[in-house]
Structures are given as structure tokens and as C-alpha cells.
């Protein structure tokens, strides 16, 4: 399964071209807008100001696996279950990849 996810992610991110010198602005990360739904609780770009866990700079696989675990929990167990089940696997991979690339 992991191999499939990584392939999907590579396609979604489009194997972003490496650019040198004077170049057009980098396109935004394709998971940015989806991931911004997490900022209200986890802080802008996943940098938490309070007791809710930080996501910025965490390992993408760890975030993705955690989201799948939350999704498997009972319906009213916690907010994260409700949030995790709102996205496809491909979307969760993009979200996880976005946070893993933010400075912590």
C-alpha cells in the first residue's frame, strides 16, 4: 500500500521542477489549501501556540499513519476522527507532505 501512496503523492506533487537563478515564482504546495483547514487548531502552517500538537516539520509518514488511525476510531471519539474521515487518502497524503515541509 505504501508504494501506491508514494506513487500517488509523486504524481500529485508533479515532481516539482528544480529551478536555478532567476526563475518564475515557485508554485504553491498542492496540499496548502487543504492543510490550511488544520491551522485553526494546530496553528498557522502547523506551528502550534498552545496545547494542541505541533504538525510543522513532523515526518509525513507519521502524520499520514496517525490520520489513518484517527479515521478508524469510533465516530464521536474525538474531533480528529471527524476531520480525518473528511478527506481521501490522496488528500491526507498531500496534507501530511505539506506539514512535513514546514519549518518547526
Amino acid at each position: 500500500m505504501r508504494g501506491v501512496y508514494i506513487l500517488v503523492l509523486a504524481v500529485l506533487i508533479g515532481l516539482a521542477p528544480v529551478t536555478f537563478g532567476q526563475s518564475p515564482p515557485q508554485p504553491p504546495h498542492p496540499g496548502r489549501l487543504l492543510a490550511s483547514n488544520c491551522f485553526q487548531c494546530h496553528g498557522t502552517n502547523g506551528r502550534s501556540l498552545g496545547s494542541i500538537p505541533e504538525l510543522a516539520g513532523e515526518d509525513a509518514d507519521d502524520i499520514f499513519e496517525a490520520l489513518l488511525e484517527f479515521r478508524a476510531q469510533p465516530a464521536n471519539a474525538n474531533v480528529m476522527h471527524v476531520q480525518a474521515r473528511g478527506y481521501t487518502d490522496a488528500q491526507l497524503l498531500l496534507i501530511a507532505d505539506f506539514f512535513s515541509k514546514q519549518p518547526d
Partner: peptide, 19 residues
């Protein structure tokens, strides 16, 4: 900061020390 993975299954959101 506690790593978010410490929360999985713990049902203990909110116990972390403040950042």
C-alpha cells in the same frame, strides 16, 4: 513540545505542556 504521535489513541489532547 510533545510530538503529535504521542497523542494517537491516547485520547489525551490537552495534556501537553504549552509551547
Amino acid at each position: 513540545r510533545r510530538r503529535f504521535t504521542q497523542y494517537i489513541g491516547a485520547g489525551a489532547l490537552g495534556l501537553a505542556l504549552p509551547r
